[in-house]
Amino acid sequence: MSRGSTWFAALTGVKPAGFEPASVLCADAKVGDERARFLSVVPNSEARFPRARGGELGLEEGWAIAWYVREVMSDDEGDRRAIIAVVDVPGQPYGYHEELLGLNLALAASVNAYAGARLAGHPVIALVVGRAISGAFLAHGLQANRILALRDEDVEVQVMSKRSTARITRRSVDELDKIAREVPATAFDVGSFARLGALHHLIEGVNADEPGDADVERVRDALAGAISSARQDATDLSSRLESPEARENRSASLRVREKLAEQWNQ
């Protein structure tokens, strides 16, 4: 079972089976004393589009996420349910059909849904339990008010898998590791990603593959904390740039914004 399935089942108590498409799991479950909607993308050996059978976020997945998120938005009028993206996505599928049928738009649809929900006042939380790669992470996780991640050596955040980066940049994995030590933005490990300041919280000491009850409780507590923090804050992504880590390691992002603001009306 993929980590996306494992954590979906552990947090919702719902069996990760019988969904249509089978690659996008969706259920509502309690976090603290409120109900939240959980979404996870998982491998599906029967997927209609064969390039997306390994848990990739493809055409069907992008549109299905958009549908599930919009359902929450239209159902809730008063109390806005939290939406939790359980993230274990190896990337987007590389295929002929995918491009012809508009993969960029399918991913835009899920970006649009998550961001729209956030702007409408739904706390959107990403919980990274495995890989968070590239376009798939943009579409499933990166529009969240708050991003949580498990501290675990197989939790990876990057713009391309290590294997593909090595092939495309014609560098060995050892060389990539060496560059990554000097430039944290190019590293794969979640600790390096945390240094960029976009993580709300790095959850320590949890068994990511076979979580026990205490592990699940710890993660649920972290989710509850993130939800309440998101409810008290702005609905944009500004918190990512306000963290101490961002002030240090995304100083250029801040400087550009300051200078643009100075020159905007002249």
Binding site: L138, T186, S192
Partner: peptide
């Protein structure tokens, strides 16, 4: 995304 700036470009 510019690969040399990787996750900074992603964010």
């Amino acid at each position: 995304i510019r690969l040399q700036e990787a996750n900074l470009g992603l964010l």
